[in-house]
Design a protein around this nucleic acid. Structure first.
Lengths: 232, 232
DNA sequence: ACCTGAACACCGTTCAAGT
DNA sequence: ACCTGAACACCGTTCAAGT
């Protein structure tokens, strides 16, 4: 029925599986069944579940390399580049909301690799662009840290709203707790929260992403202009 | 030998256990042994492992309520308050680096609750202070989103450098891979990375935290001043 | 009232055995 | 060459039984 197994097929099946049923549902045995094979067959191609998860993270981020929107158009400058890169990573996060927490929290290969920018190739291109644009070494590294902090925080929070369904397995009946009303959870004693609830519930993530990203780039821009002050 | 069991004792033992051996090592059976009891005894006080983890997150954040540095000194204004709150949460993250990823990624009780600010009590106080300081509803909510984004991203990245040892279990021998040199991992083809490696390796998290926090507060300040422009 | 032992269904992983 | 079956050590969780 199914074609032959290989590492790529397994990793991509794992991604599909996680996107559909959530990370917590992924077991070697279920992934085997998903592929029409016994779990034990996977071990021909993948050394362990942990390595499989690393493979999933790498494969998901690999899409960046094939994203035409991100490819360097040097003429538009470093801000354009950081914008494209950020949007490319955001697209990945939104495509695989259930995988992104893995991208965010798997221990990176080296301590100075900061998710969600997890590959040496992208780091190299990041620094190439910034130094080409006149950033000092120190300025480029500080930009890298601020940029990754923002991406990680924003995307993790944005994506957590979009898990694969309510996570309560199969919803196999009418035994849900009464839940005390649509969106009530003891707000009686928190007047500000009650007043702000509808505002809090709105999804403004696109606008916030653009705005915060722009403001970050502005901050970095100011640092390039007065650069050297702190350069060693 | 040990005192009697109760939920508090179990949750705090779990925190200690995670801090010592890492999240991945926490199983009901091992936690039982840690407490001098069979795993099954825990189920008298804790409905499930998932609930235990929720309890861990709550308990760790509860320290904020007893942190004298954070308690409201209204006379010093909203910026002082957000500074104290941020530093309080940072202290918690650094005290429990192996627990913080849980704080960051456990699905919150409501979709508008954004880690690491996970309790209605702190949200209420956050909004009380900001609205008292003249923020519009919209401005306060946007401040909340930007503030949590920053805290989550920064602390998750800062804390990931400080896991509980190398995570390779017991280090039970000399069978470590040769590792090809102290800090080498194929950097040959990445000249910028090689040049920046020593800078990248430096830990500047304190300075970056202060600086980025201050810049965030400045940005918010600018928004209060021209407030109303976007208030619906 | 509180803990234990035995049991169940499920894991990750190994390895000899089948085709 | 590639997959399977059986097995091992370990999970979370339930429940009748012990003290």
């Amino acid at each position: 029925m199914t074609d032959r197994l290989d590492q790529q097929r397994i990793v991509h099946a794992a991604i599909e599986f996680i996107d559909q049923k959530g990370l917590h549902a992924l077991t070697m045995r279920r992934l085997g069944a998903f592929l029409g094979v016994e779990a034990m067959a996977l071990y021909r191609y993948v050394p362990s579940r942990e390595d499989l998860l690393d493979g999933v993270v790498d494969a998901v981020l690999d899409a960046l390399h094939h994203d035409p929107e991100v490819h360097l158009h040097a003429e538009h400058g470093w801000q354009d580049y950081l914008q494209r890169l950020a949007h490319g990573i955001r697209r990945i996060a939104l495509d695989h909301p259930a995988v992104f927490p893995l991208v965010a929290t798997r221990p990176p290969a080296a301590p100075w690799i900061r998710p969600p920018l997890r590959s040496l190739r992208w780091l190299e291109s990041f620094f190439t662009v910034l130094e080409g644009a006149g950033f000092s070494d120190d300025g480029a590294v500080r930009a890298y840290r601020a940029y990754t902090t923002f991406l990680l925080g924003h995307l993790l929070l944005e994506v957590s709203h979009r898990g694969p369904m309510t996570d309560d397995e199969d919803d196999d009946g009418d035994d849900e707790a009464p839940a005390a009303g649509p969106s009530d959870m003891g707000l009686e004693n928190y007047p500000h929260l009650r007043a702000l609830e509808s505002l809090l519930d709105q999804d403004e993530s696109v606008a916030e992403f653009e705005e915060a990203l722009e403001s970050l780039l502005d901050r970095l821009e100011m640092r390039v202009r007065r650069r050297g002050r702190r350069g060693r």
